[in-house]
Design a protein around this nucleic acid. Sequence first.
DNA 1: ACCATAGGTGTACGTTGTACACCCGTCAAG
DNA 2: CTTGACGGGTGTACAACGTACACCTATGGT
Lengths: 224, 224
Amino acid sequence: MRLSREAVLRAAVALADEQGVARLSMRTLAEELGVVPMALYKHVSSKEDLLDGMVDVIVAEIDPPLGERAWRTTVRSRILSARTVLQRHRWARQVLETRTTRTPAVLAYTDSFIGMFLDRGFSVDLTHHVMHALGSRMWGFTQELFDAPEPGSVQSGPAQPGSAQLEEMARRFPNILRIATASAHGEGVVGRGCDDQFEFEFALDLLLDGVEGLHARGWTSARP
Amino acid sequence: MRLSREAVLRAAVALADEQGVARLSMRTLAEELGVVPMALYKHVSSKEDLLDGMVDVIVAEIDPPLGERAWRTTVRSRILSARTVLQRHRWARQVLETRTTRTPAVLAYTDSFIGMFLDRGFSVDLTHHVMHALGSRMWGFTQELFDAPEPGSVQSGPAQPGSAQLEEMARRFPNILRIATASAHGEGVVGRGCDDQFEFEFALDLLLDGVEGLHARGWTSARP
DNA sequence: ACCATAGGTGTACGTTGTACACCCGTCAAG
DNA sequence: CTTGACGGGTGTACAACGTACACCTATGGT
């Protein structure tokens, strides 16, 4: 069975999906494909290239923008589509963050994303700033703060109620504790009981509300 | 001259500042200190621990919140203080992103950050969502999109006007090009001619405007 | 029938983090 | 003054990584 760039990329995505990106090395991937490591280099010029290709694969999974709807629904639903894709491929966020060169597929997505604004009457100026304000949110993720111990990390789990660890925590970081306990509805403790999807949409809508206001009143940056 | 954890961390920060975090290995750091690599492990339990410690060093550089000012000015100026620190240590963003466990110093900063809201009358509920919405912005950075080729990467430079590369770009990614040329005031081309600080404050203020509105009208999440 | 070429193989190198055994200088207790 | 524990620097070694280079082999166009 012959290899191909497509086959290599698909296998890499699958392996990262299952084992996490940390377990993805040229050697493990080669073994997965029943081939010697160096064989991959006939289809991929380097590991960076491999990762770029993997990003391309998942970018292709993001839905294209829908018909003639208003900018806000179009943008919103596309971002949420990106988010479901990134949810399927949990390694993607991390890989995306480390990409230094943008592949054509990524540029194409970005271009089309910008188009959703420009084609619906946004000024180039406002669109530019909005893109910066959205930042990585256009990919459907945000820099999370408290959360997500990598699968496989030793994270002594949520603190047990009444434990010394928790008391120490309460003394030194009372504010964090208040947030944490509140968001866990009073039951589980420090562990993340909050709804990621809700948080994401909350932040997204906050931003979109702001953008809507600026657009409505014809905002433009004061800079020449 | 004896080593110490402090000395090791300071040297690591200095080395990362000068050479970039990519050039920071246990070996290079040891050599910098005129010592054998394994000596570091008497002061630092692993490279992860080293990076955690480096984060602690720079977190300590962020200004504490000022007096009794209104929440918005307090939060805003603190975030901008964090930003100037992160600007001094350009590797910090990348390192912060990869941290998986939060050190006491990081938790303390977060706690104090949350306190700026709670102490000024924000509900626990709203504060929680606001923290998520701010995300990494509380550290003074955002996921940049177009920019910042790592120093040392081969990035064929901004496209030359009239080059075939630029024409290709114009055909395939017209929207990106419009944004890029506009933000570069018509002179330089695809390269980033835009003002990072302005973009950061624009996005930050957009968010803070939204938060202000929610707080003013006593917003609370509908969830039980 | 030829031979160029695409694609898989084998070996090898340099770099990384770090485990483990060692060894030495300092200082407290006898 | 001796002793012995111990904090801290050393040396060697290993496994895993990305990948350069030379090689082999089956395919397919001329």
